[in-house]
Design a protein around this nucleic acid. Structure first.
Lengths: 149, 149
DNA sequence: CAGAACAATGCAAAAGCTTCTCATTTTCTT
DNA sequence: AAGAAAATGAGAAGCTTTTGCATTGTTCTG
């Protein structure tokens, strides 16, 4: 029911798909899911839902500030619940693991750099690509392949 | 002819399309062009070339380290000649203007953050989105719309 | 609580960028 | 100059995301 309030609060009608998607995002709070992920998980959970609806709802939630969209390499987006606070990402190019971080020094420098260049900053996107040292990560050795940005 | 040497140096055969693309990238050294841009410009210049070839060649040049690929918002890539030195971007969300910058403080912090999180950094992508104060930029006022990342 | 107005949904088709297939052409070696 | 191997071009195909439209569902009014 808490979901109902959140959805109503942002001016959207409370419908099955919207509630289900919001619940799922809350459940996978610690992950980044793609629209396809959301769609597949809901299907597997026995829900009847269309992929187009998932995209539409996620976009609406983004506009409403409920979720954040991140465009990683590869041409597709991942979503996560907004937690109010801005953060950046480190992505393991081997296993796909994503770690979030924030750094005041970087934030300050960004502001200063924008200023120096005559820009007024609206948002920014910082993603580090590398390889994690997680023992379960399959990439144990070899040269790093670097995505770009 | 200088192009011939560069292409040969990275182990690729010297062909018309590759030379033309490299020349064009050198000509537009100060810009970021998409594959479509390269294709269209070459067509307009009277060259016979296929879009598939442009994509293939740009990808090969990227692998060879001759050019860099940047994935901006919107799901498409832009390319520019590699200048050896890493740099980040500030993009004006109104007029599309792109300014490059580098900042040692940010680079250091990134390295430290990766270290703290058990990552070995291969590459990173930092793009600031904002609005420029260029008098010719059409966006003079109003709220900033923020792309994400 | 019924009915109307309008928004939301689902499906399929379409769009936009990029990659792949394959017959043909070009490059490089001998 | 000839042959082997690689590159090209054109179109088909792939992926993620968006759109069109008839149908279904939600909310508001009386």
């Amino acid at each position: 029911m808490a979901e109902d309030q959140e959805i109503r609060k942002v001016g959207l009608k409370v419908t099955g798909p919207r509630v289900k998607i919001l619940e799922l995002l809350e459940k996978y709070d610690d992950r980044h899911v793609s629209a396809e992920d959301v769609y597949r998980m809901l299907l597997e959970a026995g829900e009847e839902i269309g992929l187009a609806t998932v995209y539409r709802v996620l976009t609406q939630f983004e506009s409403a500030g409920l979720v954040e969209r991140h465009n990683f390499e590869g041409g597709y987006s991942v979503f996560e619940l907004s937690r109010g606070q801005h953060h950046d990402h480190i992505v393991c190019i081997v296993c796909g693991k994503v770690v979030e971080f924030t750094d005041d020094t970087i934030e300050e420098r960004q502001q200063a750099i924008a200023e120096e260049n005559g820009f007024e900053i609206g948002d920014h996107s910082l993603t580090l690509y590398g390889r994690c040292r997680d023992p379960e990560c399959p990439g144990k050795q070899g040269a790093i392949t670097t995505p770009s940005g």
